[in-house]
């Protein structure tokens, strides 16, 4: 599934958060959206997931306008938000069933897919536990499992490793790269940690609400990490 963002701008009152963003995310590839905190990544994700209203510009998935055909687009999108989006007072199973129902899946279909996703992420033994009782790494894996239950062809992940330890981060990054290569799911992964990006991944660098550069990670990251993004080591990863 291909994503085209055309001349996308967004303001919060007097604050310009995004300025005329143009980008093309090619199908079946892993794309990273790199930028410091405050660069506009979450705003862009808010617009891509319809949590924010498009003020100017256009977003199209496989040529279909998000504004005019939201339902058609949203059923093909899997989303993992930066903040927790699970109901802490429900069990893993109940959370996943709820998500399946929100995509119109029957109980039977949902059951089979939930079992398969939980097995994939090695979470089957946690199925009946309350989300509140799980650690951050497990919660993020459940969020990823949830985003895959309706079999999306495009996965949007907004800083999905926030708050995770190094091992959990590494595991999550590996899972998503595997999904991308094995199932040809298009991935857009927002982060400010460049060690989450593989050399072959395509990178968009966002700074001050503007798209600064686009290209393969192996050439862009060495060229830009110090000049534009700074280099501040952070626990569990290196900040760009």
């Amino acid at each position: 599934m291909q994503l085209d963002v055309e001349s996308l701008s967004h303001r919060y009152g007097p604050t310009q958060a995004l300025t005329r963003i143009h980008l093309r995310v090619k199908p079946g590839q892993f794309h990273a959206l790199l930028g410091r905190n405050g660069a506009g990544k979450t705003t862009l994700f808010g617009l891509l997931t319809r949590l924010l209203h498009i003020q100017s510009g256009d977003i199209r998935f496989d040529g279909i306008s998000l504004t005019h055909h939201a339902a058609e687009v949203m059923k093909k999108l899997g989303v993992v938000f930066q903040q927790n989006a699970l109901d802490l007072d429900l069990s893993v199973d109940q959370n996943l069933h709820y998500h399946a129902a929100l995509h119109g899946l029957s109980r039977g279909v949902a059951r089979a897919r939930i079992d398969s996703e939980l097995a994939r992420f090695d979470l089957s033994s946690h199925q009946h536990r309350l989300v509140r009782t799980l650690n951050a790494g497990h919660r993020r894996r459940i969020e990823l499992a949830r985003a895959l239950i309706h079999k999306p062809s495009f996965l949007l992940l907004d800083e999905p490793t926030a708050g995770l330890d190094a091992e959990s981060r590494h595991l999550l990054v590996r899972h998503v790269h595997e999904l991308c290569s094995e199932q040809a799911i298009t991935v857009l992964w927002a982060t400010h940690l460049f060690d989450e990006i593989h050399p072959d991944d395509n990178v968009f660098i966002l700074d001050n609400g503007q798209l600064l550069k686009e290209g393969p990670a192996r050439t862009l990251i060495p060229a830009y990490k110090e000049q534009v993004l700074g280099l501040i080591p952070k626990h569990g990863g290196t900040t760009v």
Partner: peptide, 21 residues
Amino acid sequence: YDRELGSMRALLVSPLPRPFL
């Protein structure tokens, strides 16, 4: 609370029309 804690986002990214949800 759902909105503040984030779980409402799951509802809002559903493909079904928001008035229906």
